[in-house]
Write a protein that binds this DNA or RNA. Structure first.
Length: 596
RNA sequence: GGCCCCGUAGCUCAACUGAAUAGAGCAUUUGACUACGGAUCAAAAGGUUACAGGUUUGAAUCCUGUCGGGGUCACCA
């Protein structure tokens, strides 16, 4: 529809004012509710070239449109509002029944892949609330891109090596007394996390003792025996010490089993998992390459660095003086490996905004310093922190909200809230239902916020069945399905399209559906789950208004009733698809309503 | 201190690309309805878009400065 308007506008501008205008549907917007019309054109951009007053231009254009495509129009202060006949909208409805793919044409076979990395956990502690935002964003963006016909490869980069891992290993070795997930009943990632905390506890105590003995705090932090031991362990690890490697394998195995469980419950998956232990060597060779090219240099202390001061950044260490690799070394290797493997045209990294600087450096080092073409394909999808009502949550300050605990709590709340409302469920798999609602609430609440911004997660508000929440959308969907089922039970046939006049709420709803699909079409570029969530909510609200206007079963005109049922059906489908893009499941049928 | 991000109603968030009177939800107040899932609907109230300049026919949006919040500036990841 917008395309028709745009092409007509192009010829209008050419015929009336001899303006050569580049086709662009973005200047066509839906008319605001307080004005009469379906679509609005802002004519200001053409006023200067046409050398006429805005309203005159708008009126002339309006007449042109009326003549060419037979739509009505009105002009308000330089805005041209176009109104289309009802049949345009009923035709749209007819054309899109059962259409779940938003009208996308799939990309050709040789389409280059879009690679997206998300989750990226460390193997020294369980996942927390921050990872949840990361995972949900990555998962949803992959779904959106895939829905837009892109070839998506979802990857996870497990940070399975480094000093932090050694800390957990060392603490387990020293204080663990042979505790395992099997003999303790503890989830593997939680068990390893426990020893990471344990290390920190003992380490701090050591530092305190040294400081008491008269040592400077800074030197004490470096000289503490535990820290030295951990560093020694890392060197042994890189030197392939069999004992250290065996312990490392064992403990990482526990963690992976734990992560798998968390991912499964969260409903996310990956096509490929990379381990930093397998890419850091490639990274080191890239550092060598850069050294030979003269892009990097060896500092007097033996470390290898890159100087980015000409780009407005600082010096950055790429290799420690003892020759071991740092975070950046690994990321260089990983990027190279991925590029070789998939030749992606885009590499999306879903990583928190505290690493904005890191990715600026990464892009520059790969693109400018090493001169690799894939430097420009790197895109950092940065997101803000998640806070809780009763304070901040930062992984280093110990007030971490564990991902598993949070999910359990959400599911529990779903149960509480539902029984509070006096609902009775006749279905057998209520547990699955509570899980859908609880996780739906969590996912929706986090995804509806612009990723860039820090956000506040309020569990209680998220699980409300009213307002801009996942459960509200799930409910609306279920209610429509139920309505359609009821109609079918009563033998009301609503499969035939029928021409009839549209009421305001009906037209608004169809327009909302149309608008929503337009948004999804652009979502592949904007990669914004938030946009989809908010539009889906508007749609659900429009449905309620529509539903309230004329109760469907009171409608005696059969054609009208058919039409209303069709609109309902398409609305349900669109809501379901929107939720699918957010990775949220919708129950088909929630419950039987009790008489009381 | 340098660099980056954010600041919108009491609270949580929108505003896709610069466009009409800045929109929702929650909370508050008032009213309506029961053939279908009321977990609803209608309405009221709530704003100098942190502040000051600038660009523009038009600014929450772009530019400059100030203030406030967060992040980052590790041989941590």
């Amino acid at each position: 529809m917008k395309n028709i308007i745009a092409t007509t506008l192009k010829s209008a501008l050419n015929d009336l004012y001899q303006i050569d205008w580049q086709l662009d549907t973005s200047i066509i917007q839906k008319t605001k509710k307080e004005f009469e019309g379906d679509f609005t054109l802002v004519v200001f951009p053409f006023v200067k070239m046409a050398r006429k007053a805005p309203d005159a231009v708008a009126t002339e254009l309006g007449n042109y449109f009326k003549e060419k495509i037979g739509c009505e129009f009105n002009v308000v202060k330089g805005f041209l509002n176009l109104s289309f006949p009802d049949t345009v909208w009923t035709d749209f409805l007819k054309a899109n029944r059962d259409d779940g793919n938003y009208g996308y044409t799939p990309m050709p076979e040789n389409e280059p892949v879009t690679l997206i990395e998300y989750s990226s956990p460390n193997t020294n502690k369980p996942l927390h609330l921050g990872h949840i935002r990361n995972n949900l964003l990555g998962d949803s963006v992959s779904r959106i891109l895939a829905a837009c016909g892109k070839k998506v490869v979802k990857v996870n980069l497990v940070n399975d090596r480094g000093i932090h891992i050694c800390k957990s290993m060392l603490a387990w070795q020293k204080f663990g007394n042979g505790e395992t997930p099997e003999n303790s009943g503890m989830k593997g990632d939680h068990l390893v996390g426990k020893y990471y905390v344990e290390f920190d506890k003992h380490y701090k105590a050591e530092v305190a003792r040294l400081v008491e003995g008269g040592m400077e705090k800074e030197t004490a932090e470096k000289q503490a025996p535990l820290m030295k031991e951990a560093q020694e362990m890392l060197r042994k690890w890189e030197a392939n010490d069999p004992e250290v490697r065996a312990l490392w394998n064992q403990m990482n195995g526990w963690v992976y089993a734990g992560f798998d469980q968390t991912y499964k419950q969260l409903g996310i998956s990956f096509d490929k998992i990379y381990y930093e232990s397998q890419t850091y060597l490639l990274g080191k060779s890239l550092v060598d390459e850069g050294l030979q090219k003269g892009a990097f240099y060896k500092h007097t202390d033996g470390s290898v660095r890159v100087d980015l001061r000409d780009k407005g950044l600082d010096e950055k260490v790429l290799l420690r003086s003892d020759g071991t690799s740092v975070y950046m070394t690994q990321d260089l290797g990983t990027a190279q490996l991925r590029y070789e493997e998939f030749q992606p045209q885009k590499m999306i990294y879903v990583v928190g905004n505290e690493q904005n600087y890191h990715f600026d450096v990464l892009k520059l080092v790969i693109g400018d310093k090493l001169g690799k073409e894939f430097g420009k394909y790197i895109y950092h999808l940065s997101y803000g922190m998640v806070e809780l009502p009763n304070g901040k949550m930062k992984s280093r300050e110990g007030t971490v909200v564990d991902a598993d605990d949070l999910m359990e709590e959400m599911i529990f709340q779903a149960r509480e809230k539902t029984s509070e409302l006096g609902k009775d469920f006749a279905g057998t798999n209520v547990d699955e239902l509570y899980e859908m609602i609880g996780l739906g609430a969590l996912k929706y609440f986090i995804l509806k916020v612009d990723p860039k911004k820090n956000m506040l997660f309020n569990p209680e508000e998220s699980i409300d069945f009213n307002g801009n929440t996942g459960p509200f959308l799930q409910y609306t969907h279920a209610r429509i399905r139920s309505l359609l089922r009821k109609a079918a039970e009563n033998g009301i046939n609503y499969t035939e399209a029928s021409a009839t006049e549209l009421g305001k709420a009906e037209k608004d709803l169809i327009k909302a559906i149309y608008e929503f699909r337009e948004v999804v079409l652009t979502a592949g570029n904007t990669m914004s789950p938030a946009l989809i969530a908010n539009y889906a909510f508007d749609l659900a609200k429009d449905f309620n208004r529509f539903y309230q206007e004329t109760p469907i079963f009171k409608e005696t005109d059969a054609a009208k009733r058919n039409l209303r049922l069709q609109i309902s059906e398409l609305t349900a489908l669109v809501i379901k698809n929107a939720m699918a893009l957010l990775g949220i499941r919708v129950p088909k049928r929630c419950n039987q309503h009790t008489a009381a």
